[in-house]
Amino acid sequence: MSALVELFNYDFFQKAFLAAVFASISCGIIGGYIVSRRIVFISGGITHASFGGIGLAFLLGFNPLLGAVLFAVAAAMGIQFFTKVAEIREDSSIAIWWSLGMALGIIFVFMTPGYTPNLMSYLFGNILTVTNSELWWMLSLNVVIIGFFVLFFSKILYIAFDEEFARTAGLPVNLFNYLIIILIALTVVLNIRVVGIILILSLLTIPQASANLFTKDFKKLLILSSVFAFIGTISGLFISYFLDIPSGAAIIFTLVIMFGILRIGKSFV
């Protein structure tokens, strides 16, 4: 136990702990929305497309997270545009943006002279190397997400549940949809450092699946998802440290095991 407490004396661990808290809240809430609305696949497309931006940033030498944000938002808008305006089937639009982003990322990284040492940490995450400025960005995102959901909770819920009815009631459905898709893009990108592009979808879906075992109430689902995300992330962090295995993978593994235990446990209660 003292070994655990001692860990908190390390600067890198304090940062990792804060990153875990911020990631859990943002992914818990946004993931709860994504799962309820069944837009997990769209979120996957946005996430993977952001790799193109990371590649471009490596090539041109600017902040990779900025590149990722640009590509994620572009993909989010692109998917909407392809589906609504160009009338391409939604799953096909998603696949096009998903693979286009990845392809561009690979091309850009290949064109980048020399070795790109951080590439792995963007693909698979490394919560132990999160920087101060990234933590500030994560904190800001949490404030925005919590503020948005607290202020507009009923409207978000009603639009998510029955978009058509919300339109007949006169709610600005399109505006909300665009705002939330941007929040999804930002959540994905700012949490890339925690579990990486390849694995971020897990933080948006597995804690929510666990939470959904215990509640069918939207508000409680969002809160409980954040709690489960935190338990999984922090346990994964310890496991990763003591077993010396990659943190992103350890976190996902913990989340899945936790879901399995809860699911099986529920059958016996």
Partner: peptide
Amino acid sequence: KFPITVLDVVLSGAIM
């Protein structure tokens, strides 16, 4: 399968 209660569904009718 949407996580929403019966009461919330009814309340949504009065959103505006």
